[in-house]
Amino acid sequence: MKNFRRLWLDGPYLLWTAAFIVIPLFTIVYYGLTDKTGAFTWDNILAMGTLERMKALILSLVLSLIATAVCLVMAYPLALILTNLKSGATGFIVSIFIIPMWMNSLLRILAWQTLLERNGVINQILQAMHLPKLYIINTPYAIALGMIYDFLPFMILPIYNSLLKLDPNVVNAAYDLGANRFQTFWKVIFPLTLPGVISGITMVFVPALTTFVISAFLGGSKVLLIGNVIEQQFTQVGDWNIGSGLSLVLMVFILISMAVMQHYDKDIAENKTAL
């Protein structure tokens, strides 16, 4: 009876995990490590080695690191301000940042495309004010801008949550023991909210590294990210093997970045028990 109930409760979740996570993952691993005839090969992995693909991978890494860093620098002060606001105002400002998330991400990126176009809204305004025009559409700058805009809420929310959980008296205790604002922030507030920072970094860096929508619309066909390279393999070239192989390489980079994050997270945990 107990086993039956357990199966009944766990079953749908296990089925879901198998159907939509485990099986697709193994399919990619299978395609990535075989050729058209189904024989084992490393060729699809090594296909990353071309100049064009390496450039796309490095550009992706650079842009997502920049986007993550900018998001962090923007989000932390904002989260601090939110935490110190009176309750009514907090709800309003948090919703300002969350409401855009209700809209389709594609739509938001299309909006940026319209804004940034050579004769788009921003340039028309600049022209009307007799200011030099801004030509950043179809450049990496526009892609970075799109990433920052799209993923900023994912940085704010975890940091804001970890700040909310912080006991105000812990901060008061630091002041009480003689620390100034700067010392209190770096010695107490920031280390204690590091778990929020780390989950924010993960939630921005990973989607930024894999995006192809933002680069497709704001980078035109001139700037390719690794996401676009992989997407083209599936949709245009129709070579599932190479597409899967490249995906596996990207996955390794994501796993490395997550391992680094985990390492920092563990450092915090260890600091508590060791020395």
Binding site: D176, A179, L192
Partner: peptide
């Protein structure tokens, strides 16, 4: 005068220790 400039120290409710430190 700011708290960090005062010659008194506080023991807070629920201790308020720095849990990330030994």
């Amino acid at each position: 005068l700011a708290p960090n400039k005062r010659q008194l120290n506080t023991v807070f409710q629920k201790y308020a220790l720095f849990t990330h430190m030994s």
